[in-house]
């Protein structure tokens, strides 16, 4: 069958099935199981209303449970099995993984990413938000800085590979970074993506470029939400623009900055496409998610693959706990 036709049929079945399920199950509940008539009408209505939420929730909770909750525990279980998942090996996978230089390199690089990308994106985003809010064409500027958000990590990788391109000395450079480097007096064109440690930085720039727009949009909304009186008071007290920004505005949006920071941190922990497309972990640029992909689909070692996924989960766990706690606080 042609995939487009298959897609149309799936949409019809999926959407129709969902709507049909909700409609029919409600009908069944109201007309057959607990009809709102007869001798115990009040009791029936109450019972129907007690059951109905679960009808509404069931498909979503089933999908969430099967596609996200169950895999967490299953992956944890599988991480104690050997490469073909046939035999229990205890902590063997973890021991082997932590003995492997490539894994330690991935761990180190992930920490570098964690330190630099959220900080840089938030800082640039804050700067962009503050500056664009003050000028007339600010909205256009915001749109353009925000645009990389829509570009895939793979597309961004191609875009930046062109920026980092290097031609041998003597030929004209087509990568703009080398053209600038030579124009500023560099001695010879550099293969930017093969210089250890620095190449991590060049990969991070791609993600910073994408995430700055996100930080900018959210921080700009937060900045606009600051009560004007506080700023007026500061001006009357003789504060200069920098003092207003750092001592009045930033403390008031600290909560939002933390949210932006953690959101970008989550993206960084899962970063895969950029490294996969640009260097594939060569030249000391490995990261955890790409290491896991390598183990799964190149080395065929599902045990160590699961173990490395659990490492990512452990790194995410503090954010998860913090998120749940603040969500619960809000509910009260």
């Amino acid at each position: 069958m042609h995939p487009a036709l298959l897609a149309v049929i799936t949409i019809a079945i999926g959407v129709g099935g969902c709507i049909g399920y909700f409609y029919l199950s409600n009908l069944f509940l109201d007309k057959v199981l607990f009809p709102a008539k007869g001798p115990n009408i009040g009791q029936n209505i109450n019972r129907a209303n007690a059951i109905r939420p679960w009808l509404f929730l069931f498909p979503a909770m089933f999908a969430l449970g099967l596609y996200l909750a169950y895999p967490v525990f299953e992956t944890l279980r599988l991480s104690f099995f050997n490469r073909s998942l046939g035999q229990y090996v205890g902590f063997d996978n973890y021991a082997r993984m932590f003995g492997e230089p490539k894994f330690l390199e991935a761990l180190r690089n992930n920490f570098l990413w964690l330190l630099i990308v959220p900080a840089a994106s938030t800082a640039f985003g804050l700067m962009a938000a503050q500056l664009t809010d003050r000028i007339k064409w600010g909205n256009l500027a915001k749109s353009l800085v925000f645009m990389p958000m829509a570009i895939s990590f793979v597309g961004a990788s191609v875009i930046w590979k062109l920026v980092y391109d290097a031609k041998p000395l003597g030929q004209e450079q087509i990568g703009i970074l080398n053209a600038i480097y030579l124009g500023l007096g560099g001695s010879e064109p550099q293969q930017w993506l093969t210089i250890p440690l620095w190449n991590n930085m060049f990969l991070m720039i791609v993600l910073i470029w994408i995430q700055t727009g996100f930080a900018m949009v959210i921080l700009s909304a937060a900045l606009r939400g600051i009560p004007e009186e506080t700023i007026e008071a500061a001006i009357i007290d003789g504060a200069n623009p920098f003092q207003i920004f750092f001592k009045i505005k930033v403390p008031q949006i600290a909560g939002t900055i933390v949210v932006v920071w953690t959101t970008i941190t989550l993206v960084v922990l899962k970063i895969f496409d950029i490294v996969f497309a640009m260097t594939n972990g060569q030249w000391n640029t490995q990261v955890l998610a790409n290491y896991m992909y390598d183990k799964l689909f190149r080395a065929g070692d599902w045990g160590v693959g699961s173990a490395s996924a659990i490492v990512i989960m452990v790194l995410v766990l503090p954010i998860l706990v913090w998120n749940v706690r603040s969500a619960r606080k809000e509910m009260r």
């Binding site: 929730l57 909770m61 969430l64 596609y67 996200l68 909750a69 169950y70 895999p71 967490v72 299953e74 992956t75 599988l78 989550l266 922990l269 899962k270 895969f272 998610a289 896991m292 799964l296 599902w302 693959g305 699961s306 996924a309 659990i310 990512i312 989960m313 995410v316 954010i319 998860l320 998120n323 749940v324 969500a327 619960r328 509910m331």
Partner: peptide
């Protein structure tokens, strides 16, 4: 249940690859 959804919001999908 709301807390459950919020928790799943941040679960990396890498965890889901092998079991699924």
């Amino acid at each position: 249940l709301i807390a459950f959804v919020v928790a799943l919001l941040v679960v990396p999908l890498q965890l889901a690859l092998i079991p699924l």
